[in-house]
Amino acid sequence: MKKILFVTDLYYNAKGRNYYEEDLFLTSVLREDFKLLICNPKDINNFSEDFDLILLRNTGPAANFEEEYKLFRNKIKTHNLLTYNSFDGHGDMNGKNYLMELTNKNMPVIKTINNINDFHKLPYAENYIIKPIDGADSIGLEFLSKKEIYKRTNPNNYNILIQPFIDFEYEVSFYYIDRKFQYALYAPNKEKRWQMEEYTPTNEDFHFCNILLNWNSLSHGIQRIDACRDENGHLLLVEMEDLNPYLSLLDISPTLRDKFVSSLKESLNNLL
């Protein structure tokens, strides 16, 4: 049996979700096929060279273990470590700058800037969302008018994200393993983001996802594409989670869950 270092923070507290329950389930099924050791992300560099593969799961934001994460990213190259996900994606694993890149490319994303001098790139809205560029789980998020943003924001500050507030219909997430679709979930009540229900994508939805999958070019791993459907019925990217996406595995049907586990084991075995 191959050895996997399963990296997770079982004590990470996420609003509306119990990350540890999902990872305890995953470790219980993966140990059927692999030798498994659970590791906190702050300890990842103490064990990374002793395993055939390092699997990152619900570790929480990389900002919580920033120094360890930087060192680990360097060790991947210098020690030729095999990781899951691969670290060649362009989404959240590298921070939020990709939102500005997609905005500048006029791709289907909520228009985003990181400096007040670029405000002309945003569509008109009565209110805007402002949050730290390295934030997570809505930490530091505020709703402000354009006037308030100009009053409070330093033109030399590039460490914020500014987006128009969109009165969307609902949020929806699409889950992929190695670019193969697994399932989709949506939140019919937009006030309760993590009360998810199964969602059947349309051909237009798959086209939207394929545009983003082609852009991201992740070699292998799990991706979660978070989007919102605007008042015109169009999907706009909220987040390309390609580092350690929460999967809501315990909220889906046993059939879908079994399919996902089977796909994940197949992907890992193909790598190993």
Rank of each mutant, 00 (worst) to 15 (best):
V29D: 03
Y128C: 11
F51P: 15
D43N: 15
L272W: 02
S173V: 10
K192N: 12
Y12R: 08
N210F: 14
K259I: 05
K75C: 14
N85F: 10
Y98I: 06
L218Y: 01
V238Y: 11
P41S: 05
A227N: 12
Y12G: 01
Y176F: 12
L55H: 07
L10P: 05
L236H: 06
H234G: 06
H120Q: 02
I139R: 07
F6N: 02
C209Y: 02
N94C: 08
I38Q: 09
K192A: 08
L235H: 13
T103K: 15
R179I: 09
Q195W: 01
Y183P: 09
L56E: 00
C209H: 01
D226T: 09
S28W: 08
Y246A: 07
V172I: 14
S86N: 14
I133P: 09
A136M: 03
K105A: 09
N216F: 02
K2L: 12
M93H: 01
Y186P: 01
P164C: 05
Y11P: 03
I162W: 02
E32M: 04
D52A: 09
K105Y: 03
L71D: 06
E126V: 13
D242G: 08
Y158F: 13
T255L: 11
N189W: 00
L141Y: 15
K105I: 02
M100F: 11
R179Q: 15
L264V: 05
S248E: 04
L213K: 14
M100L: 10
G95R: 14
D134R: 13
T103A: 03
L53V: 14
P254W: 10
H79A: 15
D205A: 04
F6C: 06
K259F: 13
L55E: 00
G135D: 14
K15I: 02
K180Y: 04
T8F: 00
S217M: 07
K35P: 10
K3H: 13
I166W: 00
D52F: 04
T103Q: 09
G60V: 00
L53E: 03
F174N: 15
P188F: 04
L56C: 03
A227K: 11
E148W: 09
Y11Q: 10
F165G: 01
M100C: 09
K121V: 12
F260W: 12
K147F: 11
S263G: 02
D226R: 08
D134S: 12
N40W: 00
N210Y: 14
G233W: 11
R257A: 06
D167T: 10
F168Y: 13
E204K: 14
D167R: 03
N46L: 12
L212A: 04
G16K: 14
T27I: 15
F143I: 15
K77W: 13
E66G: 03
Y84Q: 12
D242S: 07
N214V: 08
D178C: 08
F260M: 05
N85H: 08
S267M: 06
H79D: 15
L247I: 03
F181T: 05
G95C: 04
E68T: 12
L213N: 11
L5G: 08
D167Y: 07
K105V: 03
P123I: 04
R229W: 11
Y20M: 10
K3E: 00
F206A: 06
P201K: 03
R229C: 05
T255C: 06
Y158A: 12
R152Q: 08
M1R: 15
E171T: 02
C228L: 15
S217K: 02
Q195T: 04
E239K: 06
A14H: 07
F25D: 07
K190I: 15
